[in-house]
Amino acid sequence: MPENGTISHTVNNQISTIEFFHPKGNSLPGKLLMELTQKIEEASLHPESRVIVIKSGGDGAFCAGASFDELLAISNLDEGKEFFMGFANVINAMRRSTKFIIARIHGKVVGGGVGIAASADFVFAHTSASVKLSELAVGLGPFVVGPAVGRKIGVGAFTSLSVDARSWYDASWALTNNLYSKVLDSLEEMDEAIAKLAGELAASNPQAMKELREIQWNGTGHWGPTLEQRAEISGRLVLSDFTREFIEEFKKK
């Protein structure tokens, strides 16, 4: 697979499958974030698609979050804001979709990956799928993903996850706190369960699903300007010497 990562979107039996891959733990540099947003919007508008499945390639981490190399390359506020808007745009594209989104989660889930999981309507996860919001540990904070994660798991659980930024929280914790919908013991079981639910949704009334999704996402219309403001905060913080030193330290681990 290409060194800079790939994004694909296929439609089969009225099910859109979007898959992203990056050789560094499925991390998401700016270009992949932009392409992921485009694929989600494409799937949301596709006339032959009724449900969306988001997954990542390989059998390692689901998503390692932001690209540290790209974070260190940021040299001014505009570049910083633009990078973090990549995550904001993905979350907003998922929020605005008229189709239910299923996430397939395996392995470690970090930072922005937690935001993707939280923005999905139904999440199937493998027992290996531990989560971490590591932003505070590198001098930042989960500002952009915060609204999505907080909406899904509640203020208390989000506070625990964001403050305890160096700890992994296992799949059982994520299930108990509603980040995950179902946790399965094998990838084969998970894929069978995803195919079953996606098939059932594809056969359901599209208008009913659209109306139900609008009700479930009620009250999030302000996320456009809110996430942009959060991206600016992150873009400013990533320029600090404190944050750069912490990112360099994390890269060595």
Rank of each mutant, 00 (worst) to 15 (best):
4 N>W: 11
6 T>V: 13
8 S>C: 15
10 T>F: 13
12 N>S: 15
14 Q>T: 13
16 S>T: 13
23 P>V: 11
23 P>W: 12
25 G>A: 05
26 N>H: 09
31 K>P: 01
32 L>W: 05
35 E>A: 09
37 T>I: 13
38 Q>W: 10
43 A>H: 12
46 H>R: 09
46 H>C: 06
53 V>R: 08
56 S>M: 01
58 G>S: 02
58 G>M: 06
60 G>A: 11
61 A>S: 13
63 C>I: 08
63 C>V: 04
68 F>W: 11
70 E>S: 01
71 L>F: 07
72 L>K: 00
74 I>C: 01
77 L>A: 07
79 E>Q: 12
81 K>L: 06
82 E>A: 15
82 E>S: 12
82 E>R: 11
82 E>Q: 14
84 F>V: 12
84 F>H: 05
88 A>M: 02
89 N>F: 12
90 V>K: 06
91 I>A: 07
95 R>T: 08
97 S>C: 09
98 T>H: 15
100 F>A: 10
104 R>S: 08
107 G>C: 07
108 K>C: 08
111 G>E: 06
112 G>D: 07
115 G>N: 04
117 A>V: 03
119 S>H: 11
119 S>K: 03
119 S>I: 09
121 D>W: 09
121 D>Y: 06
124 F>R: 00
124 F>K: 02
125 A>N: 03
131 V>P: 04
134 S>T: 06
134 S>M: 12
134 S>C: 10
135 E>D: 10
136 L>K: 10
137 A>G: 11
139 G>Q: 06
143 F>I: 04
145 V>R: 05
146 G>E: 09
150 G>Y: 00
156 G>A: 12
157 A>R: 03
158 F>Y: 04
159 T>Q: 07
161 L>S: 00
161 L>R: 03
162 S>R: 01
163 V>D: 02
164 D>S: 03
166 R>L: 10
166 R>H: 07
169 Y>Q: 01
171 A>K: 02
171 A>W: 05
172 S>N: 12
179 L>S: 00
181 S>E: 01
182 K>I: 01
184 L>Y: 02
185 D>Q: 05
189 E>N: 08
191 D>I: 02
191 D>L: 04
193 A>F: 03
194 I>A: 05
196 K>W: 00
197 L>S: 02
199 G>E: 06
201 L>Q: 08
202 A>K: 11
210 K>A: 10
211 E>G: 09
215 I>T: 03
215 I>S: 01
217 W>D: 11
217 W>F: 13
218 N>Y: 10
219 G>D: 08
222 H>A: 08
224 G>W: 13
225 P>L: 03
227 L>Y: 14
228 E>L: 13
229 Q>A: 13
229 Q>P: 03
232 E>Q: 14
236 R>K: 08
249 E>P: 05
251 K>V: 04
253 K>T: 15
